[in-house]
């Protein structure tokens, strides 16, 4: 079972259709079972029961998640693969000591891969859909995999199966989510 974590402003919000459902559809398309929970309901035990955890993005104006960093403390000790999307990348980064900075990108954006990694195997660059007003200054434990002209777009933990992207792979790039699950679960 893949645990999909909804980071939107409240459980069952209007934003979940947009930021959670497309991710669950991608995962179900790989033949895997999905369980969806709001971030307020997730703890270390629940994350530990999953094969992998995916942290979803939020609406551009929704920064409720950023006000509760302790809610995501379980990420540091999680033994399962964890993948973050936009807000999900930000909470992963903060869990490992990174900081957030103002940076807005909206729409299709060129992304350049700067480090060989299975997540982007064979791709030197691609166009991705961005929708953020905050970017991550990654901590030392996370290495940068890809960048746009404005900020870091993808990171990976140096020793553990934890990664994240600032862009939204559910738009035009579902292969990113599929590839993370494929290589982190085999």
């Amino acid at each position: 079972m893949i645990l999909v974590v909804d980071l939107c402003y409240r459980p069952g919000s209007l934003s979940a259709y947009e930021f959670v459902d497309p991710i669950t559809a991608i995962i179900r398309g790989t033949g895997r079972d999905v369980r969806t929970c709001h971030s307020t309901q997730v703890d270390a035990a629940l994350a530990g029961d999953a094969e992998a955890v995916i942290l979803c993005g939020t609406a551009l104006r929704d920064q409720e998640y950023a006000g509760y960093p302790d809610r995501f403390a379980w990420i540091r000790g999680c033994a399962r693969p964890v993948f973050g999307i936009c807000a999900g990348l930000q909470v992963i980064g903060r869990a490992f000591g990174g900081s957030l900075t103002a940076c807005t990108e909206i729409g299709m954006t060129p992304v350049r891969v700067v480090r060989d990694d299975p997540l982007f195997a064979d791709r030197a660059s691609f166009e991705a859909y961005t929708l953020h007003s905050i970017a991550l200054d990654p901590p030392a434990e996370l290495e940068v995999l890809a960048v746009s002209g404005a900020c870091v777009q993808a990171v990976r933990h140096r020793t553990r199966p934890i990664a994240g992207v600032l862009f939204h792979p559910e738009v035009r790039n579902p292969w990113v989510v599929e590839r993370f699950l494929e290589y982190s679960l085999h």
């Binding site: 209007l14 459902d21 007003s133």
Partner: peptide, 27 residues
Amino acid sequence: SVYQAARIQRICHTLGLWCFNPLWHTD
């Protein structure tokens, strides 16, 4: 439509408004 959605998102961002697309990438 990324063309449509991105333009609406930019307008909402400029005006300080929330933007919802509840059919985005729906089945």
